[in-house]
């Protein structure tokens, strides 16, 4: 009882187990596999059809047959509106509500994980998934492209051509951009997750918010609020396919996402540190 108090650890062991557990779950692998299936399907469909280009840019689908490196780019653009937010919503919505439903929340808190520390660890864990998911899409796209199509220098939106190596680097940048794009949604999901003990409800609400944001972004009458919408710059990733890359889009999006992280992180903190844990 009177032994000197050992020094407390910041929470790295907890973060390490959080990430390990996330990637040990079958559900996580199922979602990543489903995401990886998108570029495979795109590649196979185009390979089989291989009809004349419809010429409708910038879905990049038309370029796929000519250059396999575009499979990854096209798949990212295809998954950003729904599939990615769906999986991110599942992970972020599950953070706190999932623990509550499982009965582990009370034991984590009694351990004691510390409420603020647990929130931070949960956010970082979900953020890791935000980056893992687009990277999986990009990787699966690249592999599909290499297997099914010729690969060569990439023609950027600005008309410049870059080599295969630089093309792959750009694809990696697109994936990172997409990961950053999902951070705001993750914070929203974390907050929603502190409101309920029903994980499915939190997941659904988060996904609905992501879709709502995109719908609002389509209404010209609401143009005034467009720059502040969560999803406003999601498709801005294509600006990285210019020469030189349009970094201001990247910076603007990062700032917007940071804003969402701060606001919804604060809301989650306010809610979670004061609520009664009855689950």
């Amino acid at each position: 009882m009177s032994s000197p108090e050992p020094r407390a650890r910041i929470g790295l062991p907890l973060l390490a187990t959080e990430i390990a557990v996330l990637f040990r779950r079958k559900r996580t692998w199922a979602m990543l596999l489903a995401l990886a299936a998108v570029p495979v399907l795109v590649g196979v469909a185009i390979r089989i059809a291989s009809g004349p280009d419809s010429g409708r840019a910038p879905s990049f689908l038309s370029q796929v047959a000519g250059n396999g490196l575009f499979v990854g780019i096209a798949a990212l653009v295809l998954t950003i509106p729904l599939f990615l937010p769906l999986t991110v919503g599942v992970v972020a919505g599950d953070t706190i509500a999932g623990e509550a439903a499982q009965g582990t929340l009370r034991y984590l808190l009694v351990a004691p994980a510390g409420r603020a520390r647990l929130l931070v660890v949960k956010f970082i864990g979900a953020a890791v998934f935000c980056f893992a998911a687009p990277l999986v899409v990009a990787a699966a796209g690249t592999l599909t492209g290499l297997a099914l199509f010729p690969v060569g220098p990439v023609t950027l939106l600005s008309g410049d051509q870059v080599g295969v190596g630089e093309g792959l680097l750009r694809l990696l940048l697109l994936a990172l951009y997409t990961g950053v794009s999902m951070l705001g949604l993750t914070a929203v999901g974390l907050f929603v997750s502190t409101l309920t003990d029903v994980p499915v409800g939190a997941m659904a609400a988060t996904v609905v918010l992501a879709v709502t944001s995109q719908v609002l972004d389509q209404l010209p009458q609401l143009e005034a609020i467009h720059p502040f919408l969560l999803s406003d710059s999601w498709l801005g990733l294509v600006d990285l396919l210019r020469q030189p890359p349009e970094w201001s889009t990247f910076g603007g999006n990062a700032l917007l996402q940071l804003g969402y992280v701060v606001v919804f992180g604060a809301l989650a903190y306010g809610r979670f540190t004061t609520r009664d844990v009855l689950a």
């Binding site: 650890r9 062991p13 040990r24 582990t104 004691p112």
Partner: peptide
């Protein structure tokens, strides 16, 4: 507290490791 609560998809030992890692004073 009010019955056990564990992640069903983890082993018993893995569940304990997870809860132990949540204790900042526990020695890994």
């Amino acid at each position: 507290v009010e019955g056990p609560g564990f992640a069903g998809y983890l082993s018993g030992a893995a569940n304990l490791a997870r809860l132990d890692s949540a204790d900042p004073l526990a020695d890994p």
